[in-house]
Structures are given as structure tokens and as C-alpha cells.
Design a binder for these strands. Sequence first.
DNA 1: CCGATCCATCGTTAATCAACGATAATGATG
DNA 2: CATCATTATCGTTGATTAACGATGGATCGG
Lengths: 111, 111
Amino acid sequence: MEDQNQSCKPCEQGSTIPVSHISPSDEALAELAWAIAHPARVKLVRLLLERSACVCGELVELMPLAQSTVSQHLKILKEAGIVQGEIDGPRVCYCVNIAGLARLKALVAEL
Amino acid sequence: MEDQNQSCKPCEQGSTIPVSHISPSDEALAELAWAIAHPARVKLVRLLLERSACVCGELVELMPLAQSTVSQHLKILKEAGIVQGEIDGPRVCYCVNIAGLARLKALVAEL
DNA sequence: CCGATCCATCGTTAATCAACGATAATGATG
DNA sequence: CATCATTATCGTTGATTAACGATGGATCGG
């Protein structure tokens, strides 16, 4: 993983970029990236994409984690806007928030 | 951020997907996402993209963080393969690892 | 109304992270 | 060789995370 074949020549231009703080855009991307920065959450997103929608209980059965832990991960994904949940009687049906996932994709793609 | 306009209908198919553990692919994406899951690291990547390359000391000046903290963030980005550093005399010149960043983009894009 | 089911939340514990200053290591310079 | 400059690493502290079991609130079936 330590690629060194790429040239990385030192630039000697003076600091033309002004000192700036961390921008809201940096924060936004970091927040979205953080939402999927855990293997279990990546898997949850992938499961929801495969099935298009899924009741919470099914997700728990498919994950090697306790119900409360899965619920917690789903909450994190929901707060980031990557997933959404819809109450269906006593159950909760989760699915991917298309717009949210698209936003993540766009922010990463334009790096 | 709580989009509820999207339909999320419960599916009643039995669990056709077998219980699987978390795959290496999930881990890989999570690891790459985690590398940019911090505003300072996103900013570092963006700075390196703007300037194409940059000596560590310059990065420190551009960031509102201590030298040791910036160095730590650069290490994390390097270990994830998103950035690479090249020793240039007493300095270290950092630049984005094109292949690594591309891998992150690809994994996110195919979600 | 009661019990059962489903899910979110709470409270706890152990582990990891983020930030810093101080120190060490490396290479250049005199 | 001694010194300076640059960067990585160490050690510490406080904050955050991840995981779990237990609890509680909501809804459905009888």
C-alpha cells in the first residue's frame, strides 16, 4: 500500500494560498464519510441497496451484532442522511436515502 | 436533513439473502472512508490537490493545528494510501496518491 | 385490557481518537 | 563535529466510539 512510483516533486512557490480555516464543505464531507467509516455501516448500506428496503429486524438477523448495536448504527446513518426509516405498524422499514447517498458520491467524486 | 418524501415500502419477501459476515470489501471502504472522516484530513487532501504537492511545514502553516497533530493526520492519510510522502532533504514533500484516491472514489461510486 | 413483538434509548465498560507539548531522529550547513 | 531546521514519534489527557444488556414505549392480536 506504500506506492512510491508516483512523482511528488517539491514545489517552491511561496505560500500563495491564504491561511484558511476548515471550511463547511470539509466538515460536510467528513461527516458523510464518517457515517460509512465503519464496516458494519457499510454492510448495512449495501444490504439496503440489495434489497431496496428492509425491516429493522431482518437487518439485525443479517448482522453479527446485537439488536441495540444495529439500531445505533442505523441511527448514525439516518442522522447523516444516508438512510431513512419509515414506521410500518410495529416495525420500522429502512431504505437508502437516494439524495443523501448521491450527495456523498458527489462530494467524493469532486475531490 | 430528514427527507421523508422518498417511498420506502416494506418488502415481504422472506430472507433470501444468507447471513453473511462483514466482507473485506466492507472493511476496505470503511477504512478509506475513515481516513477522510475528519475535517482536518479532508482539508489536507484538498490542499494537496490544489497545490499538487506541498512540504509538510507549509501544510502546518495552513492548518489551525499543531505540527505534531498535522503530522499525525498525514500519517493516517498515508497509511490509508490516499497520500504519499517523499523525503526531500530535511523536508518531506507530500502529495495525493492518485491511485489511492481513485480507489476510494471507485468504491464510493459503486455503492 | 393483556400479553407479545418490535424497536429505540439508556447506562455501562473498554477501547480508540484527537490534540498537544516534549523529545528524538534525520539531514543540511557552517 | 556542532548546530540548526524539519519532521516523526512518544506520552499524556480528555473526549468520543462501539458494543452490549436491560429498560421502556408503541403497536398489533386476541
